[in-house]
């Protein structure tokens, strides 16, 4: 009788899921199917994930986590401006995802009809402690109640970059670099509230001086 493998941790289940998709060209229909191929059992799986849906979101979220952890360990990261932090995150995340490009393209093709996946993924990522998002935009995760719109915007931006990357057929994926530069620029320009703050400040000032400023008396 073959010796049973040691129970997988989360990362090993993620690797097994990728192998399954690459080898079979389809998504595992049940946990048992995946576990059987990985030489694991259903209870082993349940120790790490509640169901396949949770595992699937963890597969994509891992690129975010790995990029996040790498940047936190990079001494240059702190010297970057907020916008550069977001740019750096996207480049590292795409580099990580690029190593799994074949899997991701297959996964994207197979998940095309699962409309709930994107929502689940966003919810999952929004619950994660992603220091990069906090540092890139002051999107604090510590005292958050519900979804932080700033972190959600940065995550959405990162996911759109991943989608663009998977359909980028330009030489050396240069268009993805251009996409990252251009969209980050637009994102930070659109959300620059300094003009609005100045207008509010001016409005308050004029309102408080309304009796003297605009009167001939």
């Amino acid at each position: 009788m073959a010796k049973k493998k040691k129970a997988f941790d989360k990362l090993q289940w993620i690797a097994a899921y990728k192998s399954f998709v690459l080898e079979k060209g389809e998504l595992p229909a049940t946990v048992r199917e995946l576990a059987e191929m990985a030489g694991q059992t259903f209870p082993d799986f349940k120790k790490q994930f509640t169901d396949l849906r949770q595992l699937e979101t963890a597969v994509i979220a891992l690129y975010f986590k790995e990029a996040n952890d790498l940047l936190m360990a990079d001494e240059k990261f702190e010297e970057y401006s907020n916008k550069e932090k977001q740019l750096a995150f996207l480049y590292v995340m795409i580099e990580k995802a690029g190593a799994d490009e074949v899997f991701l393209q297959e996964f994207q093709r197979l998940k095309k009809t699962d409309r709930g996946f994107a929502v689940r993924l966003m919810r999952f990522l929004n619950r994660q402690e992603l220091s990069w998002a906090e540092l890139s935009w002051g999107a604090s995760t510590a005292e958050r109640v519900g979804v932080n719109p700033k972190q959600a915007a940065l995550i959405q931006h990162a996911l759109s970059t991943l989608m663009f990357f998977l359909k980028d057929y330009s030489e050396e994926k240069q268009d993805t670099d251009a996409y990252i530069e251009k969209t980050t620029d637009v994102l930070y320009r659109l959300t620059d509230t300094s003009t609005v703050r100045s207008m509010v400040d001016l409005g308050k000032f004029l309102f408080s001086r309304r009796k003297t400023t605009f009167s001939w008396e």
Binding site: Y80, K83, E84, L87, A88, E95
Partner: peptide
């Protein structure tokens, strides 16, 4: 100009160094 993270990435890609 283009961003510093892209400059660093381009260097790492071609020279494997920062």
């Amino acid at each position: 100009p283009l961003s510093l993270p892209l400059v660093r990435k381009t260097f790492r890609k071609y020279f494997e160094k920062d």
